[in-house]
Design a protein around this nucleic acid. Structure first.
Lengths: 124, 124
DNA sequence: CCGTATCCCAGAGGATACTG
DNA sequence: CAGTATCCTCTGGGATACGG
């Protein structure tokens, strides 16, 4: 593969793409952040995140579980109770995410400003 | 807003969502990584990334430019020549991304393993 | 060479209804 | 309470063709 940049990883097949596929969606990171506060039940997550549909929350949680980032604990009681929590792997991802979160917090104003400055070609 | 976790930022309106919207797509991070090697022309980026369509590369670059993360320099010559480079803001984002990249590099095997272990309910 | 326009498909994501 | 099923829309993304 060609040496197009100074990184050690190959850009063609690098695992970054797979990981971005996971955290790139709208909800995974929010779920991880919420679970950082400790174990949460399904509806606690839903209320905590606020504007996620149960549809997407369920799908997101299932994928995170499949990827070994969160655990799902089902209590066979009625009404059912399900607890979600971070695995060590999930926690480590969250830690790797923190600089990005900090950057977002610090730079969203700059991005907003850049968009305002940007002049689009005047649409007809 | 409710205190659902230990982070300082509010999860409801936090800038993380906007930033993930940008870097969550399939190409932005790859472009930033490639530009880490220095100024690149359009087709250099295309060849460097490999399997991106010009359609998406053009769209991705435009968004990155709008957001103030890369600069676009057009040389009014024939054939046209356009140089792309990271802005300081873009470079800072890339730096904030490195822990995540490192995590991806270190953990993709663990994720793959987790998927194999995961037992789906036997489909009918 | 550097794009844009168009057409097409797959998947994200919401709304609603239903079930154990 | 904790989901699944269904239907819908919108956007990411590829392929191809065309324009400056």
């Amino acid at each position: 593969m060609n040496e197009i940049n100074s990184l050690e990883i190959s850009i063609q097949d690098c695992p970054v793409r797979g990981v971005l596929d996971r955290i790139g969606d709208q909800w995974s990171v929010l779920v991880l952040l919420t679970l950082d506060g400790g174990t949460r039940r399904f509806n606690e997550l839903k209320r905590g995140i606020g504007d996620v549909s149960q549809h997407m929350l369920a799908r997101t949680l299932k994928r995170l579980e499949q990827d070994g980032l969160v655990t799902r604990t089902l209590f066979p009681v009625i009404p059912p109770r399900v607890d979600y929590a971070l695995t060590p792997l999930g926690r480590s991802l969250l830690e790797a995410l923190r600089p990005l979160i900090a950057w977002a917090d610090a730079s969203h104003a700059a991005i907003r400003a850049a968009r305002l400055v940007y002049r689009e070609p005047p649409a007809a």
